[in-house]
Amino acid sequence: MIKIENLSKDWKEFKIDQVNLEVKPNEYFVILGPSGSGKTMLLELIAGIWYPDSGKIYLDNKDITDASLEKRGVGFVYQNYMLFPHKTVFENIAFGLNLRKIPKKEIKIKVQEMMELLNISHLKDRLPRTLSGGEQQRTALARALIVYPKVLLMDEPLSALDRKTRDELMLLLKEIHQKFDITIIHVTHNFDEALQLADRVAIMKQGTISQVGNVEEVFRRPANGFVASFVGVENILKGTATMDGDVTQINTGNTVIVSTEQKTGPVHITVRPEDITLSSQKVTTSARNVFEGRVKEIADLGTLIRLTIDVGDPLIVFLTRQSFLDLEINIGKSVWTYFKATAVHVF
């Protein structure tokens, strides 16, 4: 539905640099990245708010690189909603239909249907300043959806909302995605939104795309050190990989870690903390990676306890509070760590 080829735009203080991206029809696509990575700029290039210096943008196989904003067939929901302050909720939602010269009677019916879908019918005569953040966001969504765009672009649509309202709107976005059969591109730095909503994600860094894939792929098998660090992989180690039969052995200089992924030469490896199990005594297990170590640090995260275990290399392990108490963990305690070869990602 969206195809971007070698897209570049230089604003002098920042640039989008040679971006290539494809978003499938009816896909919920999330663009993740730290602040200043270019997520909003990329969205605005797709929308037609900016024109690129080079490269192409296609929508539904049609070249829209030089098309005006209103002719692109996209809806845009900004982080700060951008509602017209002196128009009522009804008038805000009806705006796009009025531009298209739709008959008044038809507008009334369409807007009423949209307000009912988004549960804001009771707000129709209210001005934006009298609405809560969640109500403003529902109104902004209704205004974007009323013209049935092929693609809905959303710039951090949930970032200004409290947790309860954000959770409610995430459910609403799932419903909208299914009901409207629409392609959605959603920009955020919030992992919860990506995990709950995305069919696929792209990770952005300094105006470039670092990795694209489904959520499992990107979060468990990051393509490089930046992605691994950004998505919260706590255990990132360097080493030299050699093949040993059907497995790879990675020598870090302190330990030898086994992976089922086949690589040779200088590599990085990642192991997610939740994939590592812990015991106070050595036990028989199918895990290929078994190391004895000592507890170096203990951090209380509330529901979880974060441990740093020195097994030659530092390993971060998460325990539930109950497991932590059962194992009688303390600084300096000797423990055993276990993780499967399939849990070790090599890049």
Rank of each mutant, 00 (worst) to 15 (best):
127 L>H: 06
221 R>I: 00
84 F>W: 05
79 Q>P: 01
293 G>R: 14
345 H>P: 01
30 V>A: 01
233 V>R: 00
175 E>A: 07
315 L>E: 03
97 L>T: 01
253 G>Y: 04
79 Q>E: 02
234 E>T: 05
249 Q>L: 15
94 A>V: 04
110 K>T: 08
242 T>Q: 11
213 G>D: 08
11 W>K: 08
3 K>N: 13
334 S>E: 13
155 D>G: 01
234 E>S: 15
230 F>T: 02
7 L>I: 00
208 T>C: 11
93 I>R: 08
121 S>C: 01
235 N>P: 01
207 G>D: 06
38 G>K: 06
27 E>G: 05
235 N>R: 09
115 M>W: 07
124 K>T: 00
232 G>L: 02
51 Y>D: 10
345 H>W: 05
174 K>M: 09
313 D>W: 03
337 T>Y: 06
92 N>F: 03
67 A>S: 15
141 L>P: 01
113 E>G: 09
217 E>C: 02
279 S>G: 06
64 I>G: 11
60 D>Q: 07
118 L>P: 02
147 V>M: 15
332 G>Y: 09
73 G>I: 07
8 S>A: 06
234 E>D: 09
235 N>D: 11
343 A>S: 07
82 M>H: 05
303 T>E: 12
127 L>F: 13
192 D>R: 14
70 E>N: 15
18 Q>G: 07
294 R>V: 15
203 I>H: 14
40 T>C: 03
108 K>A: 14
107 I>G: 07
323 S>W: 08
123 L>D: 07
314 P>K: 10
342 T>K: 08
70 E>Y: 14
178 Q>Y: 06
33 G>L: 03
256 V>Y: 01
164 K>C: 05
317 V>C: 10
312 G>T: 04
298 I>Y: 11
238 K>D: 12
251 N>K: 04
212 V>I: 11
195 L>Q: 15
21 L>E: 13
1 M>A: 12
202 A>H: 06
194 A>K: 00
240 T>M: 08
56 K>L: 09
189 H>L: 15
203 I>V: 14
242 T>L: 07
309 I>A: 06
83 L>H: 02
302 G>W: 09
273 P>V: 11
321 R>H: 11
269 I>F: 05
205 K>V: 15
272 R>K: 10
59 L>A: 12
111 V>A: 10
251 N>Y: 02
315 L>Y: 10
274 E>M: 01
218 V>K: 04
298 I>A: 10
295 V>N: 00
203 I>L: 03
226 F>S: 04
286 S>F: 04
2 I>W: 02
26 N>E: 14
105 K>T: 11
245 G>D: 06
180 F>A: 07
147 V>G: 12
